[in-house]
Nucleic acid binder design. Structure first.
Length: 112
DNA sequence: AATATGACTGTCT
DNA sequence: AAGACAGCCATAT
């Protein structure tokens, strides 16, 4: 078990996703960028891969694409959560990143 | 080392 | 607005 770099990355991703407040959302690229400052891994694909494997224990619906859309697997489920949390949505049914975007912070307890 | 795949992103048409 | 294409990064085979 072990504390491999991969697990550290996974924990860091999950930690950021859990930090996302209700009614707000962030993007894969933003999470990858925030972690890239600390872990040196930085790929939105990798963040998505982590979510696909371990996202079941975090508010994954608060993590969407860069254009406010969401993967087909999450559509209906995420929508329900957004309604329930009052996430700012666009008339098209997408999240309004201009109002709902939340900038993730490093998992090492640094914010500035 | 090379190839294939993926909850990504940006640009062009 | 929607579809197609290229770029990027890590993992698995």
């Amino acid at each position: 078990m072990a504390s491999t770099r991969s697990e550290q990355y996974v924990e860091a991703v999950l930690a950021l996703v859990e930090q996302v407040p209700p009614g707000r959302v962030t993007t894969y690229g933003a999470v990858a960028d925030a972690l890239g400052r600390d872990l040196g891994r930085g790929g939105p694909r990798q963040v998505g891969s982590v979510m696909a494997t371990w996202g079941g224990g975090v508010p994954w619906w608060r993590v969407i694409r860069s254009d406010g859309t969401v993967p087909a697997h999450l559509g209906p489920e995420a929508l329900q959560c957004w309604w329930s949390e009052g996430t700012p949505l666009r008339p098209s049914g997408r999240v309004d990143l201009a109002a709902a975007f939340w900038a993730p912070t490093a998992a090492r307890g640094e914010e500035g």
